[in-house]
C-alpha cells in the first residue's frame, strides 16, 4: 500500500510542476519565446507574496490575489518594453536577454532578501489531510493539483472560446497577417506574458507553502517546467499536466527507493520519454 500512496503523492506533486510549466508553455506557444528567467520569476512571485503577508498581516491565500494584478502589470511591461525588442528571426537574442534577466533577478533577490531560506506562513489548513480509502492525501497537494487543473481548463477556454484567445492563436499562426487584420502583436504578446505572470503567481503561492525557498532555486524550477512541457509535447496544456505528473511520480518513486535518487529519477524519466517520443506525448498536431 505504500506504493499506491507514493504514486498518489507523485501525481499531486505533478500539479505543482504543471503550474510551473503552464506559463512557460503559454509564452512559448504564442511568441516562440523561451523565457529562461521563468523560474526566477516564480521565486520573485513567492517573495512578493511573502512581503504582502508580512506587511499587511494577511493570509497567503489572500495576498496572492493582490500579487496577481501586480505580476500581470510587471509581465505586461516586461514584454512590451524589453522582450518584444528581442523577438525576430534570430532565436539567440531572447535567450541571452532572459538569461541575463535571470541572473539580474537572482542577484536582486539576494540583495533584497539575503540568502536565508524563507517560507510562507503555514496555517492549520496547510498541514491538514484527508483519508481516501487506504491512502492519506494532504489538503495542500490536493489544492495545488486542483489549481493546476483549473488553470489549464481556464487557459483552454480562453484560447478556444474568447476573442482574446483567437487573437492569440491568430498572432501565433502569423503575426504579419494578424497585424493586417488590425491586431497589434506587440500588445497581444504583452497581454500573453501578463497572463503567464498571473499563473506564475499561483505557482509561487504553492511553491512557498510547500517548501522553503531562497533566491537561487529559480533555475531548478525552470528545468522541471521545461521537462514537463517537453514530455507533454509543445503546445498541449493537458500534455503539460501529464508531463508534470510523470516527473512528479518519478521523483516520489525515486525518493521512496532511495532519498538521494529523487531529483535524478525525474530527469531520467524525462530522458526516457525523450528517447521513446522525441516530440513529446501530445505533439502540436493534436492541439
Amino acid at each position: 500500500m505504500i506504493w499506491v500512496d507514493t504514486i498518489a503523492q507523485g501525481i499531486l506533486l505533478g500539479g505543482l510542476y504543471a503550474l510551473f510549466a503552464s506559463g512557460l508553455s503559454l509564452v512559448f506557444g504564442i511568441m516562440r519565446l523561451v523565457n529562461l528567467a521563468h523560474g526566477d520569476l516564480i521565486v520573485m512571485g513567492a517573495y512578493l507574496i511573502l512581503v504582502l503577508v508580512t506587511l499587511l498581516g494577511i493570509s497567503p491565500f489572500l495576498a496572492v490575489f493582490i500579487a496577481m494584478p501586480l505580476m500581470f502589470a510587471l509581465g505586461w511591461l516586461l514584454q512590451r518594453y524589453l522582450l518584444n525588442r528581442t523577438l525576430g528571426d534570430d532565436i539567440l537574442p531572447p535567450l541571452l536577454v532572459t538569461f541575463g534577466l535571470s541572473i539580474a533577478l537572482q542577484n536582486a533577490l539576494l540583495e533584497g532578501f539575503s540568502a536565508d531560506s524563507q517560507r510562507l506562513p503555514t496555517s492549520a489548513l496547510t498541514t491538514a489531510s484527508v483519508n481516501v480509502g487506504p491512502i492519506t492525501l494532504g489538503i495542500m497537494p490536493l489544492l495545488t493539483f486542483g489549481s493546476a487543473v483549473l488553470v489549464i481548463v481556464a487557459l483552454n477556454q480562453l484560447f478556444y472560446r474568447t476573442e482574446l484567445g483567437r487573437a492569440f492563436r491568430a498572432t501565433s499562426d502569423d503575426a504579419t497577417t494578424a497585424s493586417l487584420m488590425g491586431i497589434k502583436p506587440a500588445n497581444i504578446f504583452a497581454t500573453a506574458t501578463g497572463i503567464a505572470m498571473v499563473i506564475v503567481t499561483i505557482a509561487a503561492l504553492y511553491l512557498g507553502l510547500r517548501a522553503n525557498f531562497d533566491p537561487n532555486i529559480g533555475p531548478a524550477r525552470l528545468i522541471y517546467a521545461f521537462e514537463a512541457v517537453i514530455i507533454g509535447g509543445l503546445g498541449s496544456l493537458w500534455g503539460t499536466l501529464l508531463g508534470g505528473i510523470i516527473i512528479g511520480v518519478a521523483q516520489t518513486v525515486g525518493a521512496a527507493i532511495n532519498p538521494e535518487w529523487q531529483i535524478l529519477a525525474g530527469h531520467i524519466a524525462f530522458l526516457v520519454v525523450l528517447l521513446v517520443r522525441p516530440r513529446g506525448l501530445f505533439p502540436r498536431a493534436h492541439d
Binding site: T162, E163, R166, A167, R169, A170, S172, D173, D174, T176, T177, A178, L180, M181, G182, I183
Partner: peptide, 25 residues
C-alpha cells in the same frame, strides 16, 4: 492567400471582423 492556418474558417472571419471593424465578437 494568407489565412491563419490553425484557425477554422469561421474563426478566420471572426478575427478579421472584430479587429477590422473594431467591434465585439
Amino acid at each position: 492567400p494568407q489565412p491563419f492556418e490553425k484557425l477554422t474558417v469561421y474563426e478566420n472571419l471572426l478575427v478579421a471582423a472584430t479587429h477590422g471593424r473594431n467591434m465585439s465578437e
